[in-house]
């Protein structure tokens, strides 16, 4: 890997940072969404469920374009963010993170939902009869038991973020050092004449990172499950 140029290293670090931010913000929200979807029946639940899963089935370009519409400087949320906090998401590193978070959200929600579904609701009932209130049960029973799913969701989400392309390039554009993550850098390299070597090097990095992510999630999942006695 010593043959990577400083710009290439920059793309690698940027990718890792963008993915980390996407998971840091996306995962808690994904956990909350998964919990609401598994534990509550309310009007509009079907719509929420569909919305959450939409990025998984939509062409990523469409997701990116929708993000532009909503979070662009004239979009309903984008305008507010700019007015109130001076935050601009479009064409920024934060915007790349947002695009990644939205794209990987369904994967994280699914993983956490599976974990929540596998928790015996009888355990929460038992905790109730032992004097544990709502918050107490969530913190001491539900979350620890769902932790393998949450962690695996986080790792798989992170690994998927590393590969996000369509939504990121549409919403955050391809700015080296700011929004040019690995896949975007690979694409840019392929577009420029004689860039095949660079593309190959970056692809190797990409493959290595993806593999590490998958192996880690497998290993952590197993370890946590043994800790929980499963």
């Amino acid at each position: 890997m010593t043959m990577l140029s400083p710009e290439e290293w920059e793309a690698v670090w940027l990718t890792l940072a963008v993915a980390a931010r996407a998971v840091a913000f996306g995962l808690p929200l994904a956990a909350l969404t998964a919990w609401v979807l598994t534990r509550y029946r309310f009007p509009g639940r079907g719509i929420l469920n569909a919305l959450v899963h939409l990025p998984m089935v939509l062409p990523p370009v469409v997701t990116g374009w929708l993000l532009l519409l909503i979070f662009g400087i004239r979009g309903p949320i984008g305008a507010l963010l700019l007015d109130w906090f001076g935050i601009r998401l479009v064409f920024t590193t934060a915007g790349a993170s947002l695009a990644c978070a939205v794209m990987t959200f369904p994967i994280m929600v699914r993983s956490i939902r599976l974990a929540l579904d596998s928790i015996d609701s009888g355990l929460e009932q038992a905790a109730r009869t032992l004097g544990a209130g709502w918050w107490d049960r969530l913190v001491n029973i539900t979350l620890p038991l769902a932790s393998p799913g949450i962690l695996v969701g986080g790792i798989v989400g992170y690994a998927t973020c590393l590969g996000e392309f369509g939504a990121v390039i549409t919403f955050a554009a391809n700015i080296p050092g700011q929004t040019q993550t690995l896949p975007l850098a690979i694409y840019a390299a392929l577009q420029s004449p004689g860039g095949e070597t660079k593309a190959a090097e970056l692809s190797m990095v990409s493959i290595t990172l993806a593999l590490i992510g998958l192996l880690l999630s497998e290993w952590f999942g197993k370890k946590l499950n043994t800790m929980l006695g499963r």
């Binding site: 015996d120 009888g122 355990l123 620890p144 038991l145 929980l228 006695g229 499963r230």
Partner: peptide, 10 residues
């Protein structure tokens, strides 16, 4: 006390 004990596995 439940039939299936329901001890907290963690």
């Amino acid at each position: 006390v439940f039939q299936d004990s329901r001890l907290f596995p963690h």
